[in-house]
Amino acid sequence: MRLEGKVAIITGSASGIGRGMALALAKEGAHVAIVDVNEEMGKKTLAEINQHTEGMLFISDISKRENVEYVVSEVVKKRGKLDILINNAHASKQASFIETNQEMFDLSFGTGFYPTFNFMQVAYPELKKSKGKVINFASGAGLNGQPTQTSYAAAKEAIRGISRVAANEWGPEGINVNIISPIALTGGVEQWKKDSPELYDAMINNIPLRKLGDPEEDIGRVAVFLSSSDADYVTGQTIMVDGGSIKLR
């Protein structure tokens, strides 16, 4: 129960990596607010969380700042504080560099970068009170410049940039800001494995540990660490949770 009594907001947490982190934090005692657009999956995840702690569910379009403000205010109103903010939500479309257009940038920045920025800015007063933790998400697509991921890579690297700025500015106030860059076996990846087994096997063979991470046991446990007092002296870092695929220098 390393996070007993802590209050967390996790965006994009109805399924996939977000769900894994929500369950991992709840099992350590955190009260988790799920923020997602998928009501059906959100309710299922909330039921799982409620087996361990009392959660909250917000079906919300967080591309709008007023919705971000509403979520933060409601969580604080009900729980009295905010200790942990995890910005995981992100949507994008793949296209070659030449074919990438403004609509694709608007989607990627509108669902990933701007919600991350807005949640950090809106939550800052509460995080300052609690000396809280912020976890944002990067991707190997940005770090390695993966083909067909122009808009996604740009938004992810922008998130890394503002995370480092916040880590420097907020560090004196006791707020930790870190980034996770994961590889995990989600529902979408499982479908891709069925559709393109040769490409999937090639990807696995490029991972030193020869497997994809589990959203709860692998990614979620690192999120628990970064959310806990064990990580009080860690800030501004990009943590690669990718089986050794990328080794930062």
Rank of each mutant, 00 (worst) to 15 (best):
L199S: 10
D106P: 02
P197V: 00
L143D: 03
G187K: 03
V224I: 12
V72Y: 04
S15C: 02
E190F: 01
E198T: 03
S228W: 08
E169P: 00
R221D: 13
A26F: 07
G55H: 03
G112Q: 02
K93T: 11
Y152S: 03
Q121H: 14
V224H: 09
V75N: 05
V224F: 12
Q121A: 11
N206K: 14
I9L: 05
G187P: 04
G18D: 05
V134P: 00
A154F: 12
I162R: 09
A153M: 14
S181H: 04
K247A: 14
P125D: 10
D230I: 03
W192V: 06
I34G: 09
A8Y: 02
Y200I: 09
E126T: 00
W170K: 09
G236Q: 13
N50I: 14
V68G: 14
N206S: 11
P215V: 01
A123E: 07
N101P: 01
S181N: 11
D201H: 13
A138G: 14
H52K: 06
E173Y: 15
V75R: 01
L46K: 06
D195L: 13
T235L: 06
P125C: 08
F97G: 10
F119E: 12
I17A: 02
E217K: 15
F97H: 12
S227Y: 09
M120S: 09
A47V: 01
L23T: 05
V189L: 10
L209I: 14
P182N: 07
K128G: 08
I84L: 08
K131V: 05
A24E: 00
L212W: 05
T238Y: 02
V32P: 02
S73P: 02
N176L: 11
Y152W: 02
S15W: 03
A202K: 13
V71E: 09
P215M: 03
G243D: 10
K77Y: 03
F225W: 07
A223D: 06
L248P: 04
D242K: 01
S229V: 03
